[in-house]
């Protein structure tokens, strides 16, 4: 018998925004989850924290702007956002530089605990 209760979903983004198609795909999956009123979290890890840099200008590339997509998250009530503070330091980004401001920065132990809080993890 299929189970029908809602399952919580964590989307883990580990790739930089424009170097691979998986990056944007992962965010679209997260947004799809919210449109179906699923409990969705997004964790930016490793090169994935580079999504959070402001001032992305993709005009010359002819690709969609991922920073704008992330800025639209509140419209979809996608507000469980987490990021890896080790990756932040590794990439030399100060927390105040990164968007959005409501992101929760986690150390390694907190990330390990976060992974246990969700029914399913989709990692990209």
């Amino acid at each position: 018998m299929p189970t029908t209760e809602k399952k919580s979903l964590l989307v883990v983004v580990r790739r930089s925004p424009y170097g691979s198609s998986l990056a944007r795909t992962s965010l679209e999956v997260a947004l799809s989850g919210t449109t179906f009123e699923q409990d969705v979290g997004v964790l930016f890890m490793g090169d994935g924290v580079l999504h959070l840099l402001p001032g992305q200008d993709t005009g010359a590339l002819g690709v969609r702007n991922i920073a704008k997509l992330i800025a639209s998250f509140p419209l979809y009530e996608l507000d469980s956002l987490f990021a890896d503070e080790t990756a932040l330091r590794h990439h030399g980004i100060a927390q105040h530089q990164a968007l959005p401001q409501n992101i929760e920065w986690l150390d390694t132990g907190a990330i390990a605990e976060l992974l246990t809080r969700y029914d399913h993890i989709m990692s990209f």
Binding site: R14, M45, G46, D47, T86, T108, I111, A112, L115, T116, I121
Partner: peptide
């Protein structure tokens, strides 16, 4: 309790991130 599956060679970021969180 999580099953981690790793499809990345030892020098990959996949390996590095997996080891951190196991």
């Amino acid at each position: 309790m999580i099953l981690h599956t790793l499809n990345g060679a030892p020098d990959s970021t996949a390996f590095r991130d997996c080891i951190r969180l196991l």
